[in-house]
Structure formats: structure tokens, C-alpha cells
């Protein structure tokens, strides 16, 4: 086959399952542009009323953290246990706080 290997760009799809909830990443698909990506996302990810709202974002527009730098990036939070409520001891008689 000598077809020009020119793929439609890749889009990431986010669906809000119902009013009051956040949009959640549910997958990706190829589409020529944003309008087509929306239509296709409807057909692919909401065939059983799974959503009331869809966001589409071209995959290349997403900047992701580097998993190799996971240590440096997230470690600073590891030793700050005083950020958690359980760090503090409160007399039992105070009850729920």
C-alpha cells in the first residue's frame, strides 16, 4: 500500500458523568479537528449515557511530569507529616475535631 501515512491527530477525551462531578479522563481517539473529536467522543465514550459534558484536548498540548523525576518532584512532601490531621494528638474528651 502506498497510502500517505498521514494520521489524524490524537485527542484526549474527558467526560463529566453528571452535573456536580468533575470531568474525568476516559481515553483518546484520532480526529481531524476538535469538532470532529467531540462528535466521535460522543459516539465512542457516551453510548450508554455515560456523560453530560465532554472536553477534548489535543494530546500534544498536554505537558506531563517526567516519571524519571518522580523522586525529586514528589519526595519533598514525604517528610511533612505535620500536614496531616493525624499528626496532632488531641485529648479524647475533646471529641471529633
Amino acid at each position: 500500500m502506498t497510502t500517505a501515512l498521514k494520521e489524524w491527530p490524537l485527542w484526549e477525551i474527558f467526560v463529566r458523568s453528571k452535573q456536580g462531578l468533575e470531568h474525568k479522563h476516559c481515553g483518546s481517539l484520532h480526529a481531524a479537528d476538535a469538532a470532529q473529536a467531540l462528535e466521535m467522543a460522543r459516539d465512542v465514550y457516551t453510548r450508554r449515557q455515560e456523560g453530560v459534558s465532554i472536553w477534548v484536548v489535543e494530546s500534544k498540548a498536554i505537558t506531563a511530569s517526567n516519571p524519571d523525576e518522580k523522586g525529586e518532584l514528589f519526595d519533598p512532601a514525604a517528610d511533612k507529616i505535620y500536614r496531616h490531621p493525624t499528626f496532632y494528638e488531641i485529648p479524647e474528651e475533646v471529641g471529633h475535631m
Partner: peptide
């Protein structure tokens, strides 16, 4: 029709999963 459409969707979920490994749809 609904079932066959589902199969098309399943193919797409899976192609997308494979694409994350660095192979292209084409």
C-alpha cells in the same frame, strides 16, 4: 447494530492502549 458498534468501540479503546506503547495506528 448496537452490538457491532460496540465492537468498533472496543477496537478503538485497544488501539489507543497500544498506541501508548509507541506504535502508531497506521
Amino acid at each position: 447494530i448496537a452490538k457491532v458498534q460496540d465492537e468498533g468501540g472496543h477496537g478503538l479503546y485497544l488501539y489507543s492502549a497500544a498506541e501508548t506503547l509507541g506504535t502508531s495506528r497506521d
